[in-house]
């Protein structure tokens, strides 16, 4: 049954086969995508026609690699800008929210906490359209009352950042709160007794203690923003982010340049994830 009990051979083998199959299911699409990035073919398909770097470095005319593909590079740059904005905003506000819910007492705290959790149960598509409609209404209001034509309320990078920020901050808050809960508040009292004010206590003691959680949350925020599609779809203007741009290419027929992008994304995110997990588990012990 479990590892401390004697198990029949059939049981253990059966279970092992199941797990192996599960991991094949998990990795087959990723491995195949990565391998086909190096196939010397115009289509992301077999047969294997030899190894090539063209889908990374090709200069054309028939094979334009990712490093010379202006549209895809631009969308990667856009995604980086969005993710950077979302990461900074959501980490700052998420940390404040963690302090607010863990260390402050106020009326309607339960209600506000419930609201803070709400983005977790609102589908991303709904967040996207509701923010689109609200910002359009605000933009119209400014235009009609003051005659100001404000671009920031129409779809574009700013709106994408706010849209993603609206739910990623909840995740950041939960991650940082989890560590703040374990914080020994006698340390703060000791600092107060030694004459520190609240700002100093937060800066030198609490934030210092929270640092691993804040860094971890920032990485999660960055990755979530970088891959967000559902909320972004409705808020994006002419500057497509990478997932939106990839979606358009996959929908309308694709070349192995997508495999090359996938290869780079899989390798980078896996490295970040492994480093994050490794440092996370080290901090716990």
């Amino acid at each position: 049954m479990i590892r401390t009990l004697p198990n029949s051979k059939a049981y253990t083998t059966g279970f092992k086969v199941f797990i192996v199959l599960y991991f094949v299911f998990l990795f087959a699409p990723l491995v195949v995508t990565m391998v086909l990035a190096f196939n010397n073919s115009m289509f992301p398909a077999l047969p294997w026609q030899g190894f090539t770097w063209d889908w990374f470095f090709g200069k054309g005319p028939d094979k334009i690699g990712i490093f010379h593909d202006a549209i895809n590079l631009r969308s990667i740059y856009t995604s980086f800008r969005v993710a950077a904005g979302v990461t900074i905003l959501s980490t700052v506000v998420g940390t404040m929210a963690a302090f607010l819910f863990e260390q402050e007492e106020f009326r309607f705290k339960k209600l506000l906490y419930f609201l803070m959790l709400a983005p977790m149960v609102i589908p991303g598509v709904i967040l996207g359209i509701s923010i689109l409609m609200f910002s359009t209404a605000v933009g119209l209001f400014f235009e009609n009352t003051f005659g100001w034509n404000m671009d920031m309320f129409s779809p574009g990078i700013g709106l994408v950042i706010f849209g993603q920020f609206s739910f990623i901050t909840t995740i950041v808050t939960l991650l940082i709160s989890a560590r703040l809960k374990k914080f020994d508040r006698t340390l703060e009292e000791a600092a107060y007794n030694l004459g520190a004010n609240r700002l100093e206590v937060i800066w030198f003691i609490t934030l210092n203690y929270l640092r691993p959680a804040i860094i971890g949350a920032a990485i999660v925020a960055f990755l979530m923003s970088f891959e967000n599609f559902n909320t972004t779809l409705f808020l994006v203007g002419s500057n497509a982010t990478l997932p939106i741009n990839l979606y358009l290419q996959v929908r309308d027929g694709s070349t192995p340049v997508i495999n090359a992008i996938a290869f780079l994304l899989i390798v980078t995110t896996s490295c970040i994830a492994v480093v994050n997990l490794y440092s996370g588990s080290r901090n716990k012990t």
Binding site: F23, L26, F27, A28, P29, L30, V32, T33, L36, F43, P44, A45, L46, L223, F226, E227, F229, L242, P243, L246, Y247, V250, S254, I258, N259, I261, A262, L265, I266, T269, S270, I272, A273, V274, L277
Partner: peptide, 27 residues
């Protein structure tokens, strides 16, 4: 770690992988 890795990858890339596997001219 092995279980977590695929889910850090963009959803679109994961779906794209399945398209490459399953389509008529697929793997």
């Amino acid at each position: 770690v092995l279980i977590l890795i695929p889910f850090w990858v963009n959803e679109l890339i994961r779906i794209y992988g399945w398209i490459i596997l399953l389509r008529e001219s697929g793997v």
